[in-house]
Simulated scan of single mutants.
Amino acid sequence: MPKFPACNVPVAFVAKVMKKDATFIRAGIEQGWLPIGYAKPSAKTGKMSYYISPKLLWEVTGILYEPEKEGCDE
Rank of each mutant, 00 (worst) to 15 (best):
D73L: 13
E30T: 08
K3S: 12
Y51C: 14
G32R: 08
F24N: 13
T23A: 15
I52M: 09
K55M: 15
K55S: 08
V60M: 14
W33V: 02
T61S: 05
G28A: 05
N8H: 11
A6H: 10
P5R: 07
K44S: 14
K20E: 13
V11M: 05
A6L: 14
Y50R: 05
K19M: 09
C7K: 04
A15S: 00
S42R: 09
L34K: 06
G46A: 05
P54Y: 00
S53Y: 10
W33A: 06
W33C: 04
C72H: 13
Y38Q: 06
V60A: 14
D21Y: 02
T45I: 09
K19H: 14
P10M: 12
L64P: 05
N8C: 10
K19Y: 09
M48T: 08
K55P: 04
S49K: 13
G62V: 03
M48S: 11
G71E: 06
E68Q: 12
G28L: 09
S49P: 00
V9I: 07
I25N: 06
T61H: 01
M18K: 11
M48F: 13
E68V: 13
S49H: 14
V11P: 07
S49A: 12
K19V: 10
F13I: 08
Y38H: 03
M1P: 09
G28V: 06
E59D: 15
A43T: 09
A12W: 10
I36L: 02
M48V: 00
C72I: 10
E66W: 12
R26K: 15
I25S: 00
S49G: 13
M1I: 02
P10Y: 11
K3N: 13
K47M: 04
E68A: 14
G46V: 03
M1K: 11
M18R: 14
G28H: 13
P35T: 00
P2M: 06
K69N: 14
Y38I: 07
P67A: 04
P67L: 07
P67Y: 07
V17I: 02
I52K: 02
L56G: 01
F4S: 01
A39L: 02
V11Y: 04
I52D: 05
M48R: 15
V9A: 06
D73I: 08
I29L: 02
E59S: 12
V11E: 01
R26T: 07
V9N: 10
P10G: 08
V9E: 11
G71Y: 04
L64I: 08
V17A: 03
I36M: 01
I36A: 01
P5A: 07
K40M: 12
A22T: 09
F4W: 03
G32K: 06
A43S: 12
L64Q: 07
M18A: 06
A6C: 13
P41L: 01
V17K: 03
R26N: 03
E59W: 00
G37V: 01
P35W: 03
M18N: 07
D21H: 04
V17Y: 07
K40E: 10
